[in-house]
Design a protein around this nucleic acid. Sequence first.
DNA 1: GCACTTCGTTGCACTGAGTGCAACTAGCGT
DNA 2: ACGCTAGTTGCACTCAGTGCAACGAAGTGC
Lengths: 239, 239
Amino acid sequence: MSPTPSPRADDPTVGRRAQLKARTRRDLVDAAAGLMHDTEGVDFSVEDLAARAGVSRRTVFNHFPSLDDVVAAVGADAFGTVRDALLAARPPEPHRDDAHARRAAVLDDLVGALRRADLVRPMASLTRGLGLAGECADAAVVPPHQAMLLLRSLSEVSERVADDLVSRHAGVDLLDVELLVAQTMSSLVVLHRHWFTRTGAASDAAARGVWADLLAHLAPALATATAPPGTPATEGHHG
Amino acid sequence: MSPTPSPRADDPTVGRRAQLKARTRRDLVDAAAGLMHDTEGVDFSVEDLAARAGVSRRTVFNHFPSLDDVVAAVGADAFGTVRDALLAARPPEPHRDDAHARRAAVLDDLVGALRRADLVRPMASLTRGLGLAGECADAAVVPPHQAMLLLRSLSEVSERVADDLVSRHAGVDLLDVELLVAQTMSSLVVLHRHWFTRTGAASDAAARGVWADLLAHLAPALATATAPPGTPATEGHHG
DNA sequence: GCACTTCGTTGCACTGAGTGCAACTAGCGT
DNA sequence: ACGCTAGTTGCACTCAGTGCAACGAAGTGC
């Protein structure tokens, strides 16, 4: 299902040692993703995961402190498309003068990546993988623990995306970028809840349309929270 | 330490039954807060909590599905000052015309509550209660699980605050409010991390000054959005 | 007041997550 | 080849969390 969607495993430290360690870690994440897909939830045991990954039960806890961290890694893997979309686009003009314009440029860069990245697929996958489709499709409510799992998945990529953004936008304040990224990622959780209650976590064209509509709400809200009144920012885009 | 800081336990359904149930729940939350304060972390056992609350071990799980939910309740209790500050202020002028102004009014209301509420005290309390002061004061990094605990505490109050905001601002879009609240609450986690690394979770005047400075980063648009364009806003605070 | 139901609490047994420790083994420098 | 290091494994252990069957007091109808 997720055969290395983002080949970012080319660290300079690729000894035979770290290579094998990364391999077992990937096996674990893939096995967890497969189990989540099969059981439609996080109902599998640690031994199930270890058996499917072909490692010992103890090895699981050598890589992840808890099962939640494994599913967070699965989610982060799925949401890697956001970082891919960000890095795929070439960085905008190198430097601005005032802080407002710099923040607006970062926001533009990030929201652009969110628009270009296919978020419906990982959202649908994670929704089913967390067992939200079967459990509470009628209740239309996301239990707090699953919501936290979703948020942790996004937090995982947030750190990397924040680092990428400060690299792409020279001279921007680190705190501002971190705020922007955190705000955006938590917004995605809210958007996911609405999208889930409206579409039931489907991946068809209608669900994508709903998502695009919801995503259009994101930019104005972020602009309200960050942009000065003189800047049009990313206002007005509406599918 | 936390003798009912917000007496919102006056529901219309106060039979003798629910009253006792609410009492034991409060005992549990208070006991958890006390244990977190004593042990400087979440290192206590369920039996410790049950013993301190004067209830059975099984009763803990009758009220909270897991220990994390207990500490989330403790955090939500501590952050109740935000909702108090929000409800203390009377709502602004009833209605605006365009959506941007409505959003800005909601943000104004929310950030105003954040400024008026004493956030340094609960932040410091929670930081020590989560064991961040002793564990990683030198590492200056917040482990993901504790960060999630902090975020869950804020999420708990977020729902109520969002409901309050839609009540106070008639005609505003529910999605917009939820986005704004989620963005603000996740921002508080980022601000907390910076504040923690700079002050070490102190509660003195210097720590409050740092917090106020960081809070100014949260909504640089607030000053500019509410004030007429041309005001220099709260830009330039640094260090 | 008295039977009857309801609901929160309790005790108990049980599964399973997570940890500490001591091997074992394969990569790695000399 | 040698020692050193680091990832994996098995084992034993603690403890979080669950299901179930009482028990007792609050609520209800008579």
